[in-house]
Amino acid sequence: MQIDTMPLVAPMNDVVRIRFDDVGVDFPTANGPMRVVDGVSLDVRQGEFVSIIGPSGCGKTTLMNMVGGFVKPSRGVVLLDNSPITGPGPDRGVIFQEYGVFPWLTVRGNIEFGLGLRANAAHAVRRDEIVDRYLALMGLADFAAHYPKHLSGGMRQRLALARAYAVQPEFLLMDEPFGALDAQTRTAMQDLLLQVLSTEGKTVLLITHSVDEAIYLSSRIVVVTARPARVRTVIDVPFAYPRRESIHEDRRFAELRAQLRALVMQEYEAQARQAAPAIAR
């Protein structure tokens, strides 16, 4: 496929920022170690938007958790700028599925939380400016003094995003961030994400179940197999940034969607065969 990508503001280039080098992960279980990730090798370059799709429970989240610094690989190594990842940090912003907005702080308090930490002292001088910026960008300015208990799901997600952005991370790791939202809100959030990324380029890793979402947002899509997770296919998305809603109607979008759906369905079937080998034929 012809790739015609325009550079983002912080341009995509060939510098490899994250590298999975033959990575394997085993989790201890009552029945012995369970292999969750097996032999994954993948490069993520500066400015890329990489989506990871695959069946539920296949190990996608584990891949992200390794980049996030919550899980160490059992085999192989995950490198960030050529050094192994040892733990979480403000350079890699994480958006969790459950949002995790701090209930004891107001909206403003949540967003400025990171800027009050010693690790982010460099940004702290511009604290009010940064917080006001993201309040406006996320449409939360009217709720700045409210507690999260008054916010809807979509608003909490925007708050989680604003909070992560405030510490100016280079990377964004998003684990099905829009999964719990209704279709309208989800589309709005996708557009908002693209809008912010167009002004503050970041390198993004997104886990999603939605093939459409992956195509719309990403520059590259990684299809992962049923457990243990291996890389099945890597597909480049041929649309330029900034993306327009109209690409949903593009012929290439439909072709890509069909191709990806077929791949993912095959992995779901493989997963079902794993679970009930006697039943599946």
């Binding site: 996030g68 610094g69 919550f70 733990g87 979480p88 940090g89 403000p90 890699r92 912003g93 994480v94 969790f96 459950e98 995790g100 701090f102 939380f113 990171g114 930490l117 010693r118 690790a119 982010n120 909070r163 992560a164 510490v167």
Partner: peptide, 11 residues
């Protein structure tokens, strides 16, 4: 989750 989030913010 709150502890995890705080760590990702640099705490």
């Amino acid at each position: 989750i709150y502890v995890r989030v705080a760590r990702t913010l640099g705490a």
